[in-house]
Design a protein around this nucleic acid. Structure first.
Lengths: 228, 228
DNA sequence: CAGTGGTCTAGACCACGCC
DNA sequence: GCGTGGTCTAGACCACTGG
């Protein structure tokens, strides 16, 4: 299966997998959205170039880096507990003054600084957790395995910013270098806020690439099916 | 239909529109992706808050601003033809030295500067076009109506940057203010490159908001359907 | 034209939320 | 339980690409 190769037709593949064609199509669509296959109406389905476009399919840092072809690593710079300020409490949807676990990590790609990440988690969500376990581990895996918590979703904002003194030093870039600021709030399946993460990414090393679809297909006219 | 209201169940709606439930679902899914409806498994489908999340569903500037609740406008700062530098030629996939139409526009939201956009179009794609028609018009509509060209897609990169002197002046921000840099290459249906656009957005006024899905649904186990 | 992906149907069953 | 969305099926027809 090399880049550019065509997949067997859907009508052939579906029975081979023992599923209906519609079902196969939905599966293929998922892969197409990931950018690893491309369809051509009337022609076929083809293997796409490796990193055609990740868009903003947000995953963990490690996953993201791997998809970009870099080797991710991580170093914990600071870890400890603090009492939530009113502002932080609001983000985490807890009471002001509650205990919060805070971990600051330097994220590296191919051993070079890529981002500084400050993670806040309500202490009662992760009892007895120390900073240790996080040094090169995935926080999400840890949540799942040790606490049985699965994330159900979240909201992330992306802003353009510049590095301050501390960030510049950690990221090894000049003061006021361009950077991305990500702020993410994630929730568990029960709706409870599990984390608030603030990440500053080096603007010279990180960029998005988004594939655009035709803004609006403009539907030829849509079927005359609707009688009303 | 206010925010938070539930839609009638799919099984009721589908026959009302004279379509099969699966078809209705696909239509609803589209709206959900636009962020205007939300589904809750086992509960219903609900009208979402107005600007819940556009993610990076990229549209035109005007469309984007409207969705954000701002009034878009535009002012042409410069327009003319030039011969393509090797670098620009490569982006537009034309020969170095070919004529290129160049338009610089200030994009405003609620009458305040939001972005500077530099548009490059191969001159042979838009014969006899002057900068005039673009002052407050959509370039894409113009392409469609005057030249019969419909965009089929494109690639956009997003970087963090800071404003230079010229941009700072135009955008009315201090020198070296945080900003987003978008670069977009769009193609017509025949694959030909139609435009290369470079946009600098004020970082203090523009931000993304992305809703995150559970990183990987982790499929309970998938049906035992596949016999192979 | 044959072969491909794109869409729709009508109905079944599963999984989840809520009372 | 009951009502909701979520998924699958088997087959039909449409729309596009290519020789």
């Amino acid at each position: 299966m090399d880049v550019g190769d065509a997949l067997p037709p859907e009508r052939t593949l579906a029975p081979e997998f023992g599923v209906a064609r519609m079902t196969l199509r939905r599966a293929i669509e998922e892969v197409v959205r990931e950018g690893r296959l491309k369809r051509k109406h009337g022609a076929g389905t083809f293997v796409a170039g490796p990193k055609i476009a990740q868009g903003l399919a947000v995953t963990s840092f490690s996953e993201d880096m791997r998809q970009r072809g870099n080797v991710p690593s991580s170093r914990t710079l600071d870890a400890g507990e603090l009492t939530a300020s009113p502002k932080l409490a609001k983000r985490l949807e807890i009471s002001s003054g509650e205990l919060v676990m805070r971990v600051v990590r330097l994220r590296l790609a191919d051993d070079a600084p890529m981002a500084v990440e400050t993670l806040h988690v309500p202490a009662r969500v992760v009892p007895e957790l120390e900073g240790e376990a996080l040094d090169d581990a995935s926080f999400y895996e840890l949540l799942h395995e040790r606490y049985g918590i699965d994330l159900a979703g979240g909201v992330q904002t992306i802003e353009a910013t510049v590095t301050d003194e501390r960030e510049s030093e950690i990221l090894e870039v000049p003061l006021h270098s361009p950077a991305f600021l990500f702020e993410r709030v994630s929730r568990a399946r029960d709706g409870q806020v599990v984390e608030f993460v603030r990440s500053v990414y080096r603007g010279d090393r990180y960029q998005f690439r988004v594939e655009l679809q035709p803004a609006r297909p403009a539907r030829t006219d849509d079927h005359p099916a609707g009688s009303a």
